[in-house]
Computed example of a mutant assay.
Amino acid sequence: MKNWLELSNAEDEKVWNKIYDELKFEPSIANFPSFKVPTPFITYDISLYFGKYKGLDAYDDLEEKALLVFQEFTSVDELFFMLTRR
Score class of each variant (00 low, 15 high):
68 L>W: 04
52 K>N: 11
68 L>Y: 07
30 A>V: 08
50 F>M: 13
84 T>L: 11
29 I>Q: 13
32 F>C: 02
42 I>N: 06
52 K>D: 09
39 T>W: 08
85 R>S: 14
34 S>C: 13
31 N>C: 14
20 Y>S: 11
82 M>L: 10
51 G>L: 12
54 K>F: 13
36 K>P: 00
39 T>L: 14
61 D>G: 05
30 A>W: 11
20 Y>V: 15
62 L>M: 06
11 E>F: 05
27 P>F: 04
48 L>C: 05
20 Y>W: 14
67 L>Q: 09
69 V>Y: 05
12 D>Y: 12
19 I>V: 13
57 D>F: 14
41 F>C: 12
24 K>Y: 02
52 K>M: 12
6 E>D: 08
79 L>V: 13
75 S>C: 05
31 N>Q: 15
29 I>S: 08
34 S>Y: 15
63 E>H: 09
65 K>S: 01
24 K>A: 01
16 W>Y: 10
74 T>Q: 00
56 L>G: 05
35 F>I: 04
36 K>R: 09
33 P>C: 05
73 F>G: 03
60 D>T: 03
12 D>T: 14
6 E>P: 01
44 Y>E: 12
46 I>R: 15
29 I>T: 15
78 E>F: 03
73 F>S: 02
62 L>I: 03
2 K>V: 07
3 N>H: 12
86 R>Y: 09
46 I>H: 14
75 S>L: 05
16 W>A: 01
1 M>F: 02
41 F>A: 06
16 W>E: 06
41 F>V: 11
73 F>M: 08
11 E>W: 04
8 S>F: 08
